[in-house]
Nucleic acid binder design. Structure first.
Lengths: 331, 331
DNA sequence: CTCTTGCGAGAGAGCGCTCTCTCAGCCGGA
DNA sequence: TCCGGCTGAGAGAGCGCTCTCTCGCAAGAG
């Protein structure tokens, strides 16, 4: 026994298929008693529209792809940020009854898979989360005739509207805080320089140091906790006298705190530490981490709205959201 | 200019639509030179099959839903476990070219939405992640004519095949370790008792205490870090002399460590702590956390295979995976 | 009383594909 | 030589829906 079709509903209600369709789609040009008859038939038969048939004719699918373009291990296990983005975007899309198709694009083969999928018209739009500079996906997707938005400014210049936070401004906020506290030798653990976040936060750091006449002391990590620990050890070796460090994300800051502890440095007495992101774990470090908060939820929500707007011919202007310094005990 | 259809490909290759379809679907009953002609036409036109049209006739969609049935906040931000499950399942499904539709079912309204979506035949199968006892979703979905599998044994008895780890055995492992270390007053911070994991891990704890002639000291949390901290304070109040605690998940264990530190208890000297899950953060606590590891990736992978097998008439037997004690510094 | 207007409902085409059925053509065996 | 069997390709139905076009009919205008 197969699922009831609109045909069956129409027959039961004694109307034409067209009228039944009108009722299902909430058109108003149906007389109330006929409307009720159709609704009753739908209810009795347990009718649910066939989405494939519908989207075959409407050319819509009511679903959007969320493409996460990172090695999958890093994304989910390491960085809670991604989870929040995915969740917020899902919630926002639910409100307009769109589905989220989650795609992980790690390897080259999965890139091809994603491209094929998007090109196939499976989805009405694409949200791209890709921080990686060498990523060919933004360029590839922008060539397809599907609305695409990016979470974060794409690292390569490509014509995709995006939503980002003010990375430069946030970093400046953090470093200015350290300067204001009288710190003299302020180092940084920068993020990967092929990621926008990594670049911009380093730029912010440099801006403030230049203005306040301090020397920059830079180590580079890859946004993982482990790399933060390594970079901190390196910085301590390079300049044992440093009294502050701005870390380009909280995950690395956690690693840095660990290295500082192992090196016998007290935080914030000997070395002040400021992170970036304000992940949940930042509240639970020892001491709790002073960090730059950016509105992840709002950013994800804005991305969704940008995409939805785009589909309706809305503006394709980038959206930049402000950041905020959260002062805790570490600096 | 719209997308090329199979018709166009066929015309260009000088064959019938049926033959073009055969080539696209990799059927072997096509002469090589015709096959090549069709492939060339596909390439030249940039043809990609229309999935809606295809699934209209095949009654397949090549996508499965991953339904996460928890308040969305908790799921993603708090518990890295969920992320790992989602990632692993996605990766496994990629290998068979199926897409993942991610659905968050938090409120009652979104439950209805999920049900409607599944009933609509949008997906070929459902993976359900729901640990919550009162959740009506497992029962509701099992009534639909779609293959459904569950990550973790459903809390209410319902006819859904599932993949779970040996929660009871894992807890026994943990508590036996504490007993073997000579701990006398072994408390537990149990998980929510409307979740299978919460129940079973408490059962394991009780089993061992009973056998080793010790009194059980129980506080109950809700698997969040904060609740672990609260429960630990409560336990210390109830029984200041306790010398070990088995915490039903790592997140709560992190909170418990915090409370112990605040109470001036040394870990493991004064109080030994064993967690459960072996999340990444367990390696970075102070001291690193002894915990019970269960194979999350394998469990997710097994869930996918169970679902795929089900769709082909395979067995619907539950799968139980073993756990393992990871000894670090905290116990 | 006729003609227009407008509203509500039906007829029917067609979205792009798969798959069964049919058939042409070729081979080998009797 | 004829026929049966097999292989490879085409014809065409039909998946379930939307949407335009058409039409009947009632109401109001002239």
């Amino acid at each position: 026994m197969r699922r009831p079709t609109l045909e069956a509903v129409a027959a039961r209600a004694g109307v034409s298929r067209a009228t039944a369709s009108r009722v299902v789609n909430g058109q108003t040009t149906v007389a109330p008693q006929i409307r009720d008859a159709v609704l009753r038939a739908i209810d009795e038969l347990g009718y649910v529209p066939n989405p494939a048939a519908r989207s075959l004719v409407t050319q819509r699918t009511d679903s959007v792809a969320l493409v996460v373009s990172e090695p999958p291990t890093r994304v989910f296990s390491e960085d809670p940020l991604f989870s929040t983005v995915i969740r917020s975007a899902s919630v926002e899309l639910e409100t307009v009854n769109k589905q989220v198709v989650l795609m992980l694009a790690s390897s080259a083969s999965s890139h091809a898979r994603v491209e094929r999928y998007i090109a196939g018209g499976h989805v009405d739009g694409v949200m791209l989360i890709s921080m990686h500079g060498a990523d060919p996906l933004p360029a590839a997707l922008s060539r397809l005739r599907v609305p695409v938005v990016s979470y974060g400014r794409p690292a390569v210049p490509v014509d995709i509207p995006y939503v980002d936070n003010d990375n430069v401004g946030g970093a400046e906020l953090a470093v200015r805080h350290l300067v204001a506290a009288g710190r003299r030798r302020i180092a940084t653990i920068a993020g990967p320089q092929d990621m926008i976040g990594g670049q911009d936060r380093l730029t912010g750091y440099r801006n403030v140091l230049r203005d306040s006449d301090r020397r920059s002391i830079v180590a580079v990590g890859d946004f993982t906790r482990e790399s933060g620990a390594v970079a901190m050890r390196q910085l301590l070796g390079d300049d044992p006298g440093l009294d502050a460090v701005f870390v380009a994300n909280d995950l690395m800051a956690v690693g840095a705190l660990q290295s500082l502890r192992q090196a016998g440095r007290r935080v914030p007495d000997d070395v002040a530490v400021v992170g970036f992101d304000d992940i949940e774990a930042a509240r639970y470090t020892e001491p709790p981490l002073t960090t730059v908060r950016h509105p992840v939820v709002e950013q994800a929500t804005a991305m969704v709205r940008l995409l939805l707007g785009l589909a309706e011919g809305g503006p394709a202007d980038p959206v930049i959201l402000p950041t905020e310094l959260v002062v805790r005990a570490s600096a």
